[in-house]
Structures are given as structure tokens and as C-alpha cells.
């Protein structure tokens, strides 16, 4: 059955604390910080972008399963911060992991859910026999306008999943998507920062799509909330995933392992996938995982994933999520502004 053959993540080393951002914008009471449930967020190095992080995550994924990269016949990179507006990130990844030239590749963009859609594409191509292995990636170095609530949450990270029919460490039992045209968040060409609908991004956007996709998946597969050992949702902040779990009647404890927004912020296309990686880092064979992404605009992809025995053989082959999260260096706001090159807007 089609599933995850290998996975890897990359989280940049730099962090900024929400308190430090709050200090600059006069939010001393910590209102924004508490409202978002984010303690600190990841910040990319000066020489990192969505492509470099995708390469690091992909190399980790290849190392994890130790397959010949030439057997990867499709690479899809989901991001809303591709380094080029025109010119694929996927070719950079393909060359850097050694998968060129006999493969297909493309970039995807659907706000925060392009990474899970990339995985769906790989699933379809594997299942149909078009390809042997596919590499689906979610990667982002998102920007938040200085002073905007997004500045507290917009983090950076990448997750890469090698999808195939053989040698899977976790089977993907099914996937289900829910999509409408809902303009809750966008960025026009040439603009440095995204615009968003404030509270409109919640109920009619995030919650509606995440809940409906998750419910649709369970219905399709004949499963109920209690059938899952873990649940991972897109995490624009530390609170929404908890709320969505409650709405779906999933025990909040099952969300914790995959909820990283409090420590690294919202890594956009990578957010639900880094959460999934964090669960795979500890899950036991037989565990069932619900993963539901959300991308503004808007849509959700939901997956049911069951861990196989093989995961035990592979574990430890790689730098895991906790190691990435633990290796950190804090920036003050001045260094952060330099590193993110946001000074021009002040």
C-alpha cells in the first residue's frame, strides 16, 4: 500500500521570543503572545530560503530510507515563499538530492497546504504506477509585516516526505480534501508581506475547512475520532489546533506531540508536516495518525496514516524534530530585522 518511505525536516537554528517582539511594539502585557499561544518562533539564517531548507529536509529524508535518489521520479515543492517567482524550487531540490535528470518536478502554491497537496500528487502517481518514489515537500520562510500579529507567528521550516509503494514506515490509508474559494489571506505580486482578514481567518476559513476535511476523511474510511492515536492539524498559532481537536471530539492530549507552533511558530506549508514528522519520531507500529492541513484561500487535505513495524528499524537514522528544536540561538529584534531584511519597511 502507498505510504511514507522516508521523511526529514529542517528547522533553522535561530529563534526570537514573542516577548522580544512584544517589547518593540508596546505589547508589554503579552496580549498578542498569550492570544496566539506562541512562546518563540524560528527565524531563517541570512543564507537560508525555502529552497535551501527543502534541500536539507529532503537530504534527511533520503538518508532516512537510504534509497538511491535516482529512483525518485517526481518532486513537488509546496511553498508560499519560493525564492523565485518564476523558476522552480523543485529543480534545485532535484539536483541537490541527486535525483536528476529522469524525473518530473514542479512547484506548488496553496498558502499553508501546498506541502500536503504535493504528497497527494505523489500518492496518486505511485498508486497509478507512473513513478516508483515521489518526494513531496512543504517549505516556507514566511514574512509577517512588522508590528502585525503575523510577525509573532511567521516562522520558517521544511519537511520532506518520500512516498512509495514499497518499504513504507507508515501506510497512508486514505486522503480527503475540502476546498472552497475563501479569501482569508493573500499576497499580491511584488508585495513583501501578506494581507489577511483578521478574525475572518478563523471560523469561516481555518475551522470550517479543517473540521470538514477531517470529518470527510473519517466518514470515507469509516473511522471515528477515538480510532486515532495522534492528531496533527495545521498550526497558525498554538491555540487553533487545540480548538479544532475539541470541535472534532479528539482528546487534546493526542494533539500535543504534533503541536510545535508554540516553539517554532507557524511554518506555513511545513507546519502540519513537521507536526507529522514529530509524531513519526515517537509513534509505535500500529498507531493511527490523523493529519489535516489548512491553506488559506482556502482548503484542507486530511490523511489517515498507520505506522508499520519498519519504523523501528529506521528510527535514529536522522536528526529528529526534537534535536532541531533544541539546537537554537536567540536573536534580539535588531538582529532579527537585519536577518529578515525587513528594515526597508520602517
Amino acid at each position: 500500500m502507498v505510504g511514507i518511505v522516508g521523511y526529514g525536516v529542517h528547522i533553522p537554528r535561530y529563534r526570537i521570543k514573542s516577548e522580544e517582539i512584544a517589547r518593540i511594539w508596546g505589547d508589554e502585557g503579552g496580549g498578542v503572545k498569550d492570544g496566539l499561544g506562541i512562546m518563540e518562533k524560528s527565524v531563517p539564517g541570512m543564507d537560508e530560503d525555502a529552497a535551501t531548507m527543502a534541500v536539507e529536509a529532503s537530504r534527511n529524508a533520503v538518508r532516512y530510507c537510504n534509497i538511491n535518489p535516482k529512483r525518485i521520479n517526481a518532486i513537488f515543492v509546496g511553498s508560499e515563499s519560493h525564492p523565485y517567482a518564476v523558476k522552480p524550487t523543485a529543480t534545485i531540490v532535484a539536483e541537490a538530492v541527486g535525483a536528476t535528470p529522469h524525473l518530473t518536478a514542479a512547484d506548488m502554491q496553496f498558502a499553508c497546504k501546498a506541502g500536503t497537496t504535493a504528497i497527494q500528487c505523489c500518492m496518486g502517481m505511485c498508486t497509478s504506477g507512473m513513478i516508483e518514489y515521489g518526494l513531496g515537500i512543504g517549505t516556507d520562510v514566511s514574512q509577517g509585516r512588522p508590528g502585525d500579529a503575523l510577525e509573532y507567528s511567521a516562522g520558517a521550516g521544511s519537511a520532506a516526505f518520500i512516498i512509495g509503494n514499497d518499504g513504507v514506515v507508515a501506510e497512508i490509508d486514505g486522503t480527503y480534501s475540502y476546498t472552497t474559494d475563501t479569501p482569508d489571506f493573500w499576497r499580491r505580486p511584488g508585495m513583501d508581506f501578506p494581507s489577511h482578514g483578521g478574525r475572518f481567518t478563523g471560523e469561516p476559513a481555518y475551522f470550517k475547512h479543517t473540521v470538514n476535511a477531517s470529518k470527510g476523511l473519517m466518514e470515507k474510511l469509516g473511522l471515528k475520532p477515538s480510532d486515532f492515536d495522534y492528531a496533527v492539524f495545521h498550526q497558525p498559532n498554538g491555540k487553533f489546533p487545540i480548538q479544532v481537536a475539541k470541535m472534532l471530539k479528539i482528546e487534546v492530549g493526542k494533539v500535543k506531540q504534533g503541536l510545535l507552533a508554540p516553539l517554532i511558530g507557524n511554518t506555513y506549508s511545513a507546519a502540519s508536516l513537521i507536526g507529522l514528522a514529530s509524531v513519526l519520531d515517537v509513534a509505535k507500529p500500529g498507531n493511527r495518525i490523523l493529519v489535516t492541513s489548512f491553506g488559506s484561500g482556502a482548503g484542507s487535505d486530511s490523511f489517515c496514516i498507520t505506522v508499520t513495524d519498519r519504523i523501528l528499524e529506521r528510527r535514529g537514522k536522522n536528526r529528529n524534530v526534537i534535536q532541531y528544536i533544541g539546537d537554537k540561538e536567540y536573536l534580539d529584534y535588531g538582529m532579527y530585522v537585519k536577518q529578515r531584511r525587513t528594515l526597508k519597511t520602517l
Binding site: 543564507d47 537560508e48 530560503d49 529552497a51 535551501t52 536539507e56 525564492p83 534545485i92 539546537d327
Partner: peptide
């Protein structure tokens, strides 16, 4: 070895990627 941006040809030009190194943790 790690994979990073080495240089950029300004805002409109090519981004040159390649190897850098980091201390083994």
C-alpha cells in the same frame, strides 16, 4: 556540509546555491 545560498546577483538576478559547512553537533 549544509546547503545554503552563497551569493545573490542583486534583487533581480540569479541566486547562487551551494555548500557551506556547520559544526557537527
Amino acid at each position: 556540509m549544509v546547503f545554503r545560498k552563497i551569493q545573490e546577483d542583486g534583487k533581480e538576478g540569479l541566486i547562487h546555491y551551494g555548500f557551506k559547512f556547520s559544526v557537527v553537533k
